[in-house]
Design a binder for these strands. Structure first.
Length: 552
RNA sequence: GCACCCGUAGCUCAAUUGGAUAGAGCAUCUGACUACGAAUCAGAAGGUUAGAGGUUCGACUCCUCUCGGGUGCACCA
C-alpha cells in the first residue's frame, strides 16, 4: 500500500510547498473508525515546519490527488493523523487482482537482481537433530522462502565441520560400542556420546564386518561411517519437514592452502595483523578486541597451533562476501549469542559492509506434555529428538508451532494441543478454512455448474459491498504488505498471525453470507471471493511450508 | 560479576518497531444448525503492560535504576 499512497502524498507535500525529510509512513489503525489506512506525516513534519499538526494535515489533504474511485474519504483526526477510507470498488478490484495473479500474488520485486544466502541448521554430524535445532531450521527455511517471494536468488546453506575434537570423540564412542558388541569389556567415559544411536551405528558396522575390525586401531573408519549415517539421518529428518539446502559448506575447505601457500584462516590473521589487531602472548594468537573496548582479547589460534572456532567463522563469512551475496542472513539459537559480535567486528575492520549481514536468533524451546514442562537438553540423548516430535504431531503442526511465536520469545510447545483436531489448534483452524473453501467449490461445481477455470465474470465481484465481504476483501488486499513486513522483521510469525485472522474473517463471511443459495450473480461473485481467499491461504501456506488439504 | 532475550487478561501469546480506547486464542458465562463442513460463528467478562524515575504532542515500545525468569560467558564448537 505504501506504493499506492507514497507518490500521492509526496506530490501533495511538494505542491503545498512543505519541506520535510521525515519518512511517509502508511499504517493500519487498530480501530477501523480511524480509516483503512493512515499516515502520521503531519505529526512528524509539524516541528520542523513550525506549524500546528492538524492545520498542516488539513493543508496536505487539500493537495491530495488520488486516482478516480479509489478513496472514499480523507480526514484529519486526533492530534494530526490523516485517515484514508478505501472505496468498495478499490477493494474488490484488488480481489480481482488476486485471481489474476494466482500463485504469484504477493510476490514483489525489491530483490530482483539481488542474491541472498540464508544459513541455518548447521549442526555438526555428531548426533540426531534435537527439537531446539528444529525451530531454527523451520525459521531459516521460512525466511529463505520470504526472500524468494521478493525476487531474491536465494541460496540455502548448511555450514558444518566434520573434523575437530567432537568428531574425534564421536569416532571413539562408536568404536567402544563396537568393541562391546564384539564381546570385549569396555570402560565407556562419561565425556563420550551417550545416545542410543551410537550403539545402533556400532551394530550396523558389526553387521557388515563382524569382529574383523576389533584389532583395528584406526579410528578413521568408525568416524567416517558414523558421520555418513548421522548426516543421512539429519537430512532425512529435515526432509520430513521439507527443509532442504542448496549448499553444504564444509569448514574443512578453509584449511586448504591457495597458490600463495596460505589458507583462508591464515589470510584472515594476516589481514587483521595488517590492521594492527593481532598480538601474540601466552603462546597463542589473539584478536585484540580490547582495542574495541572489550574486557578481554579473543583467541584466534590456540597455543596448540589449532584455530579456535572464531577464526574459521570469520573466514567463512568472508567467503560469503567473496561469493557476492547482496544479503547475508544467519539463523541460529540463543546459545550462539556471544559469538557473532566478534565476527562482525573483525569483518568491519577488514572493510566488509556488515550492513548486509542480518542475524536472526531464536530462543529455546520447551515442550509441555500433560501440562508438565520439560526442558530441552542435548546431553543424555534421552529424548528431545526432532524425529520423535514429528512422529507425534506431524510435520505441519511441527512447522507451524515452531514459528507461531515470535523468535525472541521462549517457545512453549504444547504437544497435546498440537495433536488436537479443533479450533484450539491453530494448524487445524487454518487448514480447516482451506478445506472448507475446497468443499464449497466442489459443491458449487455440482449444483450450479460453477467452473472458475472457464468463468471469466470476475468483475461480478464489484457487486459485493456488505461489511463481511469488504472486510474479507480488505484482508486479501493486505497480504503483499504482510509478506514485506514479515521479511523486514525476519519474522514468519507475522504470517501465521495474518493467516489466522484471514481464516477468521473468511469464517465470518461464510457464516453471514449465503453463497449457493444467493441469486446467481451474487453467488458467483461470492464464489470468486472464496476462490481468492483460498489462493491467498495457499500462497501463505507455501511460504510457511504447511500443506493445504482439500478435505480433512 | 559481565553480556543478550524475556516479564502484557487466570493460561499461551499479539500489538504494524514511537501512534489514537493495549488486542487474539484457550478457559468461564450467554446465544446461533429442517443450513454451502457447528472442525464454525455472534456476544459478555477479564488489565495500574513486574516496579520506580526520565525523554515528547504521544511510551508496552526508547534511556537509567530495581526486582524476577531464561541463556551464554574456556586456548570447547
Amino acid at each position: 500500500m505504501l506504493e499506492f499512497f507514497s507518490p500521492v502524498i509526496h506530490n501533495a507535500l511538494r505542491s503545498a510547498a512543505i519541506i520535510t525529510d521525515k519518512p511517509v509512513n502508511i499504517q493500519q489503525p487498530a480501530d477501523k473508525k480511524f480509516g483503512d489506512f493512515s499516515t502520521n506525516i503531519a505529526l512528524l513534519a509539524a516541528k520542523e515546519c513550525r506549524r500546528n499538526p492538524r492545520e498542516l494535515a488539513q493543508t496536505i489533504i487539500e493537495h491530495l490527488c488520488f486516482p478516480a474511485d479509489t478513496i472514499a474519504k480523507v480526514e484529519v483526526a486526533g492530534a494530526g493523523f490523516i485517515n484514508f477510507y478505501l472505496t468498495p470498488h478499490f477493494i474488490m478490484q484488488s480481489v480481482e487482482q488476486v485471481l489474476l495473479e494466482g500463485d504469484s500474488y504477493g510476490q514483489g520485486s525489491i530483490g530482483e537482481g539481488k542474491s541472498a544466502v540464508v544459513e541455518y541448521v548447521s549442526a555438526n554430524p555428531t548426533g540426531p537433530l534435537t527439537i531446539g535445532r528444529g525451530r531454527g531450521g523451520v525459521l531459516g527455511d521460512c525466511i529463505a522462502n520470504l526472500f524468494a517471494t521478493q525476487g531474491y536468488a536465494v541460496t540455502r546453506e548448511y555450514y558444518f565441520n566434520d573434523a575437530g575434537r567432537q568428531m574425534q570423540i564421536l569416532g571413539e564412542s562408536v568404536k567402544l560400542r563396537y568393541l562391546e558388541r564384539c564381546g570385549q569389556a569396555i570402560d565407556f567415559p562419561a565425556t563420550h556420546y551417550q545416545g542410543e544411536y551410537i550403539g545402533d551405528i556400532a551394530e550396523e558396522i558389526y553387521r557388515d564386518h563382524g569382529t574383523a575390525l576389533a584389532e583395528n586401531t584406526e579410528l578413521q573408519m568408525f568416524k567416517k561411517r558414523a558421520e555418513e549415517i548421522i548426516f543421512t539421518s539429519i537430512r532425512k529428518t529435515l526432509e520430513r519437514l521439507s527443509i532442504r539446502h542448496d549448499s553444504f559448506f564444509n569448514e574443512h575447505t578453509l584449511y586448504t592452502p591457495d597458490e600463495g601457500g596460505l589458507n583462508a584462516n591464515q589470510r584472515v590473521i594476516e589481514a587483521l595483523r595488517g590492521k594492527e589487531f593481532i598480538t601474540e602472548y601466552d603462546g597463542a594468537t589473539w584478536f585484540q578486541t580490547t582495542k574495541l573496548g572489550q574486557e578481554k582479547d579473543k583467541v584466534l589460534i590456540k597455543s596448540s597451533g589449532e584455530p579456535s572456532y572464531r577464526l574459521p567463522d570469520i573466514a567463512y563469512h568472508i567467503t560469503k562476501f567473496e561469493r557476492n551475496f547482496s544479503m547475508i542472513v544467519n539463523v541460529f539459537g540463543a546459545d550462539h549469542i556471544d559469538e557473532y559480535p566478534d565476527v562482525l567486528e573483525a569483518l568491519k575492520i577488514l572493510g566488509y559492509d556488515t550492513g548486509r549481514i542480518k542475524i536472526a536468533i531464536n530462543q529455546f524451546v520447551t515442550t509441555t506434555v500433560d501440562g508438565q514442562t520439560l526442558k530441552m537438553s542435548t546431553r543424555k540423548g534421552n529424548a528431545d529428538l526432532l524425529d520423535d516430535l514429528i512422529d507425534d504431531v506431524g510435520a505441519d503442526a511441527t512447522r507451524l508451532f515452531f514459528i507461531m511465536r515470535g523468535k525472541d520469545s521462549h517457545l512453549n510447545f504444547d504437544v497435546e494441543l498440537a495433536k488436537k483436531q479443533s479450533k484450539d489448534n491453530p494448524v487445524f483452524y487454518l487448514q480447516y478454512a482451506h478445506a472448507r473453501i475446497c468443499s464449497l467449490l466442489r459443491m458449487a461445481h455440482q449444483e450450479i455448474g460453477f467452473d472458475p477455470s472457464t468463468d471469466t465474470m470476475i468483475h461480478l465481484l464489484q457487486r459485493l459491498n456488505s461489511p463481511a465481504e469488504l472486510q474479507l476483501g480488505f484482508a486479501l488486499l493486505d497480504y503483499p504488505d504482510m509478506i514485506k513486513t514479515s521479511l523486514r522483521m525476519l519474522e514468519p510469525q507475522k504470517m501465521v498471525e495474518y493467516l489466522h485472522s484471514l481464516a477468521e474473517v473468511f469464517h465470518r463471511f461464510y457464516q453471514e453470507c449465503p453463497i449457493l443459495k444467493a441469486e446467481p450473480d451474487i453467488a458467483r461473485a461470492r464464489l470468486f471471493l472464496s476462490l481468492a481467499t483460498r489462493q491467498v491461504l495457499r500462497n501463505g501456506f507455501r511460504i510457511l511450508g504447511v500443506s493445504a488439504p482439500e478435505s480433512m
